[in-house]
Amino acid sequence: MPSTDAAPLTPLALSEDLPPATVMPIWTPEGPMALWRSVGGTLSLAADRCPHRGMRLSHGFVRGEALSCIYHGWSYDQGGRCLRIPAHPDLEPPASIRVATGSVLEAGGVIWRARADDPSLPPDFPGFVPLRSLSFAVSRDVISRTLGGESAGPGILKGTLAGSAVILLCAEQAEGTSLIHLLAPADATLDQRIAVSRAAETLRRAAETGTTEAAA
C-alpha cells in the first residue's frame, strides 16, 4: 500500500451512487476495480479486468447476483469466480477462472475499502449525511489549504462551505488527483444542500487554479 497516512479504510463511493444492479469504476493504488451491487443488495469489489479478453468489468452489467462482462458475457459471482461462459453453455467454468476481489464495508451511506488484515470499522459522522462525490485535479493537500479547514483524521477534513459545516472524505487518485466525498449536515434544507454543492464547485475551481481564497 503506497498510502502515506496508513488510513485503515479508504472511502470509495457514496451508497446512493450505486443502487442495486449497477456497477461503477473505482481507482485504487493497486489498480482499477469494479464496485458493484447485486439485485439483492450485496456489495462486491472486483479487479476491473475480465480475465478473458481484458475488457473492463465496470463496463459490464449486473444481472441477479452476478457481474457480467459486456464483451462476451462471462459472468462472475461475488467471490470473483466465473459462473458462466455463454459461448460454452454446457461447460462448467474451471475454478481457476476468477477475478481478484477486495473487501468493502458500507456505513452511513459511504462505501469503504476494507483491509482483510484490519478489523477497523468505518468512522461515524453523527449529524452528517453524504451529499455528492467530486473529482479534483489536485492533491488532498491543495484541497485542504484551499478549504482552510482542519484535519479530522487520516484523509478527513472538516470545514465550512456556503455557511454549512461540511466533512470531506478524501481518497488519493491517479496522477496527483483526488476524489472527494462531501458530507453535509443532516438537517440542511434542500436550498442549503444545493448551495453546498455549488460551493464545492467553487472550492474546486479555486483549488485547481491556485486561488487561495476559501470558497466559504
Binding site: 451512487d17 443502487p19 449497477t22 462525490s133
Partner: peptide, 12 residues
C-alpha cells in the same frame, strides 16, 4: 466518464 456518478445514473 469515470468521475461522474450522477451522469452515470442519468445515462442509465
Amino acid at each position: 466518464l469515470d468521475p461522474y456518478p450522477s451522469i452515470r445514473l442519468w445515462l442509465r
